[in-house]
């Protein structure tokens, strides 16, 4: 009968072994090699290797879920849930300080954000729209809970809360990176499996319902996924900047032809933002969250400008009697 306890001990061992393997043997080795080849020393530092892996995870999951949110005009739900997650962190730190426990604040953040997600969805189902009012109620209410809890302990947990408020890449521990990797895997698998119903419900909600899709269930799935992404992103970006990563890369890729391509392009834009932002954050010793969002906005502006210039240039020959036929859409090359 010794086999049973042994089996029970297997999963944690297996998981931490898997994390070691991914972090050290695969990712660490790859970046060590890259550091040796390029002569860029920071690629070889273990804390930067962790930071870059976290940046990659963030760049994958935020635009992935954001693609569905943006096109439902639900962009601000990310902001709302981030503030709920903040309240969740405060709850965790408060409980730990008061009852001398050691509940991971990320767990309470996830729980509170998920509850808030369900609450928002229930409000939406009642009111019938993602109204600004219900969002504002949940957002400010959450932040109020957080701020009250933080001050209720004589400021004892205020220091701990700061890293969640503003985020940080330098403090990404092996353990929190493991959680982030697991969340990334979960979000990616769920979105991949539910891609078609999510897309259909986003494109034509009524048509999807008439086609027998349980749209309510997928809406709920989407907000809960958002809660997971927000909690994952919060450690790095900070509460206030989380929404930016859900929205800006998606907006950057909004001109693409085809939804699937746009999602891939949004992830690519996200990668540029997080990896560049993480690098700038280290080199100039500035906040990672701010650097990442500023790079994301710069990429957005650059892509927008390039497209405006290109369409101006291609329109000119048509006006001066070029051989392009005049098309109903103005023949400006946009489609």
């Amino acid at each position: 009968m010794t086999g049973v306890p042994m089996l029970a001990a297997m999963p944690p061992l297996l998981l931490s072994g898997l994390l070691d393997w991914v972090l050290d043997d695969v990712w660490g080795t790859a970046l060590d090699v890259l550091a040796a080849l390029t002569g860029v020393e920071m690629l070889g530092y273990p804390f930067m290797q962790r930071a870059y892996l976290a940046a990659v995870c963030l760049a994958v999951i935020a635009p992935l879920v954001g693609s569905f949110l943006v096109h439902r005009e639900m962009a601000m739900i990310g902001d709302t849930l981030a503030h709920s997650a903040f309240a969740g962190v405060a709850v965790g730190l408060f409980v730990n300080a008061t009852y001398a426990l050691s509940v991971p604040p990320l767990l309470t953040a996830l729980l509170v954000a998920a509850v808030a997600a369900v609450l928002v969805q229930l409000l939406v189902d009642r009111i019938g729209t993602y109204s600004d009012t219900s969002m504002a109620v949940v957002l400010t209410g959450s932040f109020a809970v957080g701020s009250v809890l933080v001050t209720a302990t004589d400021g004892g947990i205020a220091v701990g809360i700061n890293s969640y408020l503003f985020g940080s890449l330098a403090t990404v521990t092996r353990r929190s990176l493991g959680v982030l990797l697991a969340m990334t895997l979960l979000v990616t698998v769920v979105v991949t499996v539910a891609y078609r119903p999510l897309l259909y419900a986003t494109f034509d909600e009524v048509g999807a319902r008439a086609a027998g899709l349980n749209v309510g269930r997928y809406n709920l799935l989407l907000v809960v996924l958002t809660a997971v992404v927000v909690v994952a992103a919060m450690q790095i970006l900070g509460v206030i900047l989380v929404a930016g990563m859900l929205v800006i890369p998606v907006a950057t890729a909004g001109w693409m032809r085809g939804f699937r391509r746009a999602v891939v392009a949004a992830v690519a834009a996200g990668l540029v933002a997080t990896v560049t932002g993480a690098t700038l954050s280290y080199v100039y010793d500035v906040a990672a969250g701010g650097a990442i969002i500023l790079v994301a906005i710069a990429v957005y502006a650059a892509v927008g400008t390039a497209r405006t210039l290109r369409s101006t240039v291609t329109v000119l020959p048509t006006r001066t009697g070029g051989d392009r036929p005049v098309e109903a859409d103005g023949g400006d090359g946009r489609d």
Partner: peptide, 30 residues
């Protein structure tokens, strides 16, 4: 078995980057 085209079907998807083929493929999703 039911195809439903709502009144504002021309607004379906807003400004989503969905192509015609992608939209038609949604018919196969069920």
């Amino acid at each position: 078995r039911v195809g439903y085209v709502a009144q504002d079907a021309t607004h379906a998807g807003g400004r989503m980057p969905v192509t015609v083929r992608e939209a038609v493929r949604m018919g196969r999703y069920p």
